[in-house]
Simulated scan of single mutants.
Amino acid sequence: MKALIQRVKSAHVAVGDKLVGQIGVGVLAYVGIGRDDDFTHACKLIDKILSYRIFENTTDSDKLGKMDKSLADVGGGLLLVSQFTLMAHTNKGRRPDFAPAMSPNDAKVLFDKMIHYAKSVHPNVQTGEFGADMQVHGINDGPINFLLEV
């Protein structure tokens, strides 16, 4: 399981003309689910996203400006967007190989469980719409981006 996380000033997801998820300061996370992933991986990834220290310390003078705070510490929003293309093999040829990705039906079930878990441990969780043609808008803060894997 992988997540490309971006520290954002704000982000939102639309499907057509409908806004389906929106956050202010926080993390926009694109989530790729592999064929061997399970709920344990999903929980570990959410825990890692919430505790990964990518926000600047603005209170402790010794650590001022250092990335020392997590999403949980700053109380920011988490916008989860399913992104099967993160699982693609890209090392050969000129076309991505999506064989490592979980089947859409199984991935939706696991992604829904991941969302439920995230909402149980963090107060501000929003999502895109699984499998939809989404327009994702984000104002990167930094830009600060990391690829997390569990």
Rank of each mutant, 00 (worst) to 15 (best):
residue 50 L to S: 01
residue 32 G to D: 10
residue 54 I to L: 11
residue 42 A to P: 10
residue 26 G to A: 13
residue 60 D to T: 13
residue 137 H to R: 08
residue 10 S to E: 09
residue 83 Q to W: 01
residue 95 R to T: 08
residue 50 L to A: 06
residue 37 D to V: 08
residue 48 K to Q: 11
residue 149 E to G: 10
residue 28 L to F: 15
residue 53 R to V: 11
residue 85 T to P: 07
residue 85 T to D: 05
residue 59 T to P: 00
residue 33 I to K: 09
residue 108 K to L: 07
residue 29 A to I: 05
residue 7 R to F: 11
residue 72 A to P: 00
residue 144 I to K: 00
residue 38 D to H: 10
residue 22 Q to M: 08
residue 108 K to H: 14
residue 68 D to R: 09
residue 58 T to V: 10
residue 76 G to F: 12
residue 57 N to D: 09
residue 6 Q to C: 06
residue 28 L to Y: 02
residue 47 D to T: 10
residue 38 D to Y: 11
residue 62 D to N: 12
residue 146 F to A: 15
residue 97 D to A: 06
residue 49 I to Y: 02
residue 140 N to G: 07
residue 58 T to I: 03
residue 147 L to N: 12
residue 43 C to H: 01
residue 104 P to G: 15
residue 43 C to N: 03
residue 133 D to E: 05
residue 75 G to F: 03
residue 78 L to D: 03
residue 77 G to A: 01
residue 50 L to P: 05
residue 88 A to P: 02
residue 94 R to K: 08
residue 4 L to Q: 15
residue 20 V to F: 04
residue 130 F to E: 04
residue 6 Q to P: 07
residue 17 D to S: 07
residue 26 G to H: 14
residue 136 V to D: 08
residue 89 H to Q: 14
residue 72 A to S: 14
residue 84 F to V: 14
residue 1 M to L: 12
residue 43 C to D: 00
residue 111 F to H: 03
residue 80 L to V: 10
residue 33 I to T: 15
residue 110 L to W: 02
residue 20 V to N: 04
residue 17 D to G: 09
residue 49 I to S: 01
residue 37 D to P: 03
residue 118 A to K: 09
residue 109 V to D: 13
residue 128 G to P: 07
residue 55 F to Y: 06
residue 116 H to K: 15
residue 67 M to K: 13
residue 142 G to T: 02
residue 3 A to Q: 11
residue 61 S to W: 11
residue 81 V to S: 07
residue 13 V to G: 03
residue 142 G to Q: 12
residue 77 G to M: 01
residue 133 D to S: 05
residue 92 K to H: 10
residue 31 V to H: 09
residue 110 L to M: 11
residue 103 S to C: 00
residue 119 K to Y: 00
residue 120 S to V: 12
residue 92 K to N: 14
residue 94 R to N: 04
residue 62 D to C: 01
residue 82 S to G: 10
residue 102 M to W: 07
residue 127 T to I: 15
residue 47 D to F: 04
residue 19 L to N: 12
residue 8 V to G: 05
residue 113 K to F: 00
residue 82 S to Q: 15
residue 138 G to H: 03
residue 84 F to P: 06
residue 54 I to G: 00
residue 96 P to R: 06
residue 45 L to S: 10
residue 144 I to R: 00
